[in-house]
């Protein structure tokens, strides 16, 4: 790109400095070819500014429908994650109750029954979810955990059934 082209482009983009503006003026006055090139470029430039998009897409409805569906899917996913987390905690609580609470209670009621074979499992659960014990959870917590597990199973089953129905319908 030569100097005159550079100056013409700068002129079109309103980026000429005062010195460059004078330089272009001199070039235009002394060279007829540069003069006509400037005219041509300026005309094209102003026509290009009037150029329009030939398309009329109408996507707002489609976009909003997709957004609604995706939002619902996202919310559903969050519910599922919530249920899964609750389910995991419920199961962990149940195991803890089974291998710790039950063995302690059995030992107090039936002192002759040897439950020492369960001790490795009890120890394992004490190590992994022993925080439940340190928190000294009341008995009602275990009931809540059991109810949570049942509800979780029920919700998962319902969801599975709905999805299955949808697939069959499709």
């Amino acid at each position: 790109m030569n100097r005159s082209d550079e100056l013409i482009n700068k002129y079109l983009d309103n980026e000429l400095s005062e010195a460059e503006s004078g330089e272009l003026e001199n070039l235009v006055q002394s060279d007829q070819e540069i003069h006509s090139e400037l005219d041509r470029s300026a005309k094209l430039h102003s026509n290009l500014k009037l150029a329009d998009h030939p398309f009329e897409p109408n996507l707002s409805r489609k976009v909003m429908d997709t957004i609604l569906v995706k939002s619902a899917e996202k919310a559903e996913k969050n519910i599922i994650y919530g249920i899964i987390i609750f389910f995991a905690f419920s199961i962990a609580g149940l195991f803890y109750w089974l291998f710790n609470g039950v063995t302690d209670q059995t030992a107090s009621v039936l002192p002759d029954v040897d439950l020492s074979f369960l001790s490795p499992v009890t120890e394992y659960y004490n190590r992994s979810i022993g925080f439940l014990n340190s928190a000294e959870l009341p008995e009602s917590t275990y009931i809540l955990l059991a109810v949570g597990a049942v509800v979780t199973f029920y919700l998962l089953y319902e969801h599975h059934r709905e999805v299955r129905t949808l697939i069959i319908k499709k």
């Binding site: 998009h53 897409p57 707002s60 976009v63 957004i67």
Partner: peptide
């Protein structure tokens, strides 16, 4: 006001479409 997003869609769909086309 989720529905207001349609204003942005209408504002930009024509321009962005040209680019993508």
């Amino acid at each position: 006001k989720k529905e207001n997003f349609t204003i942005l869609v209408k504002r930009y769909e024509k321009r962005a479409y040209s680019l993508l086309f």
